[in-house]
Amino acid sequence: MKSTFFRPLLEAAIVLFVVLGAARWVTGLFAKHTQVYQTTAARQMRLLFWPLLALGAGLSVLPAVAMGSTPVSGFEWALTLGFMAFTLVLSGPALLLHLRYWVLNHDTVLVFQPVNNRFEVYAAGQRLPFERRDLARVERVTCRARRTFWAKYDYLTLHLHDGRSITLTSLLTELEPLAVFLRSLPTDRRISTWCWV
């Protein structure tokens, strides 16, 4: 009964994933490379793939144990809950960081063309009024734990002379080229275990 319900859903999800991936690849061949960065579904899925896979593996065990035809012992429940806790410890920090970064940058657009010396940030469709000379310093925070699901989550904070700060997260794009572009400014580089803003 359970397999007759879940199997078509799993097959449909796999077919949809393959079709969307192929469509993205084909359109990428003919598309003009853009210098405008924003939170896209493809970027979010690239960051969330392994955390969601781990979370799905952990949560899939519970229905199998709870709805099994044979009674489950206390030891099996302890193993199930331990496995679920383990997968939550693996994927939970990445999911929290993703949610936090999405709240910060879901309506942010970054226009970055280093060849033309163009660097603009838009929030909610409005250009944030600053020039490169208005930047006092740059804070670049990267993750120390390279083999974790949250290793690719990092951020860059632009501190302006007037006291404002603008935070750009890895949800928009890879931030290292931007940090290289701003290398003439005083830069505070920090390495953190968990890059919470």
Rank of each mutant, 00 (worst) to 15 (best):
W194A: 01
V103S: 10
L88Q: 04
A179Q: 03
C143I: 01
A85T: 09
A85F: 05
T4Q: 14
F6E: 06
A41W: 08
L59W: 03
W77G: 04
E131V: 03
P186S: 08
Y153H: 09
A66I: 07
D188P: 00
E131I: 00
R140L: 14
L53W: 09
G21S: 10
T157A: 07
A85V: 07
E174T: 11
W77I: 04
V61T: 09
V19S: 06
L59T: 05
G56F: 12
V26L: 11
P177R: 02
N116G: 06
G28E: 04
A78G: 14
F119A: 01
L20S: 15
Y122C: 08
L95W: 00
T167D: 04
S73M: 11
F112P: 01
A136I: 00
R137K: 12
K32M: 13
V89W: 15
L104F: 00
P114D: 07
T108Y: 00
F112K: 01
S3G: 05
D107I: 01
L95Y: 02
F181W: 05
A179E: 02
R137T: 02
S184K: 06
Q35S: 11
E11F: 14
L135A: 03
H106E: 06
F130Q: 03
V89I: 13
A94R: 00
A136W: 08
W150I: 01
F86S: 11
W50H: 10
Y155E: 00
T4W: 12
T173L: 07
S69E: 14
F75H: 14
T173Q: 07
L110I: 05
R118S: 12
W77K: 04
G56A: 15
S192E: 11
W50G: 02
L96D: 02
Q38W: 02
A124T: 10
L48A: 10
V109M: 09
R147T: 11
W194E: 03
P8Q: 03
R189A: 11
M84C: 14
P63S: 07
T148P: 06
V65G: 05
A22S: 06
P129M: 10
L47Q: 04
L10F: 13
Q113R: 15
A145D: 11
A31H: 08
R133F: 08
E11P: 00
W77Y: 14
I166D: 03
L10Y: 11
V26I: 13
T108Q: 03
V121Q: 02
H106Q: 04
L97D: 05
P93S: 04
S60C: 12
S184W: 08
N105T: 05
E131D: 15
R100F: 08
A12G: 14
L97G: 02
W196M: 06
G28M: 07
A85W: 05
T27R: 13
T169S: 05
W194F: 10
F119W: 05
M84T: 12
A54I: 06
A57V: 07
L182P: 01
A23L: 14
A54C: 14
A85D: 01
L185G: 03
V72E: 10
S184H: 15
V138N: 04
E131C: 11
N117Q: 13
F5H: 06
A136S: 15
R147D: 12
G74I: 03
N116T: 07
R137E: 12
T70S: 13
T167P: 01
A94C: 03
V103Q: 12
P71K: 12
L16V: 04
T27E: 14
V109K: 06
